[in-house]
């Protein structure tokens, strides 16, 4: 259809009829629908005066899709958008690049002696994950709601038959998958290099580390999206996310160290306080599950191993789960309370 057709029906008479006369081009009326579905009668349309066009586009009944379906729809869109975004490419490249560097440095350091154990390689990977993954997940989450809100997209999206929880969770799931891809690719490259250079880090340990990294990413994404749902502007949200990242990565540790030395905290107090930080939970869980046990971490780690032993897994899992669920739940609440625009 070209614009000329529209113009043909466009010259409205300035006449005097009570309801404006509408001239619908014949081509519009007769167009057959590719849907080929019969339209359901709608409550608001008892008169049956719809055009064939209306009938054909009609959905079956007027029941909105279920929650799971909407979450998946939004998630799919978010994922597609994320993997096309610059940040995704940037983080994946940075992650894989730094991982490569660490792997090669480890390879040259061990001189290909091929000794299998927990070592600087694993430590380096843990360090890398601790730096990159929270930053990535926090900023990805921080952009999710606030930038849409700022650009009016959120309002448009919410004007559709979806609930706010669905949009929120959908975005969460979509971004989670994007982060999953990023982490898998980054650590996959590391593992590939390690395999190629013949450093025997155990494959199970790498997979486990990957899983834990994803867990950490889920928690940080949850926090990032909470920040986003509370922020009016995307720039503020991202700024806050970076601040939170700095706090979790450096400030809280340094604070805890200084506090522990100044206040002469007991070992168990130090251990439990450190567990407040999800990065520490990740780190300790990785160490705990890797070759080395937690006693690598000195007296506090020894205390943890001796006091809780196998229960540590449950403690760490609870810590990580809390960081996923609590901010997510608060975020959904905030989303449901606040105006869309």
């Amino acid at each position: 259809m070209n614009l000329a057709t529209f113009r043909a029906g466009c010259d409205l008479d300035t006449g005097t009829s009570e309801t404006p006369t509408v001239i619908v081009p014949q081509s519009l009326r007769d167009a057959t629908s590719p849907l080929g579905k019969g339209g359901g009668q709608t409550p608001g349309n008892a008169s049956g005066k719809r055009s064939s066009y209306d009938m054909e586009l009609c959905a079956s009944g007027h029941l909105p899709p279920g929650m799971a379906r909407n979450v998946l729809t939004v998630a799919g869109r978010e994922l597609r958008d994320a993997v096309r975004a610059k940040w995704f490419l940037l983080y994946t490249l940075a992650f894989a690049g730094l991982g490569l560097a660490i792997s090669f440095v480890s390879a040259s350091a061990t001189g290909g002696s091929g000794l299998a154990s927990f070592g600087r390689t694993t430590a380096g990977m843990i360090n890398l994950v601790l730096l990159v993954v929270p930053l990535m997940a926090l900023t990805a989450g921080a952009g999710a709601i606030a930038s849409d809100r700022e650009r009016g997209m959120l309002q448009y999206l919410l004007a559709q038959p979806v609930s706010r929880s669905e949009v929120y969770l959908g975005k969460y799931v979509g971004l989670a998958f994007a982060l999953l891809a990023c982490i898998f690719l980054g650590l996959g490259v590391c593992a590939g290099v390690l395999a190629w250079t013949g450093i025997g880090t155990k494959p199970g340990a790498v997979l486990w580390l990957t899983g834990l990294s994803f867990g950490l990413a889920l928690g940080m994404l949850s926090v990032g999206m909470l920040i986003s749902s509370l922020s009016r502007r995307a720039s503020v949200a991202v700024g806050t996310a970076v601040f939170v990242w700095l706090t979790l990565v450096f400030v809280s540790d340094l604070g805890l160290m200084a506090g522990a030395m100044a206040l002469r905290l007991r070992i168990e107090q130090l251990f439990w306080l450190s567990l407040v930080n999800p990065l520490q939970v990740f780190k300790m869980w990785s160490l705990h599950s890797a070759d080395a046990s937690l006693d690598v971490l000195g007296p506090a780690g020894l205390y943890a191993t001796e006091e809780y032993g196998r229960g540590l897994n449950a403690i760490f899992a609870a810590g990580m789960l809390a960081w996923v669920i609590v901010p997510l739940a608060i975020g959904v609440l905030v989303m449901n309370r606040r105006a869309a625009a």
């Binding site: 002696s113 898998f184 690719l185 593992a191 395999a195 790498v206």
Partner: peptide, 18 residues
Amino acid sequence: AAGGALGLGGAAALLLTA
């Protein structure tokens, strides 16, 4: 020297494929 290289390569392939 660990026989882990093969398994590790497998892990890498798994992660990259996924």
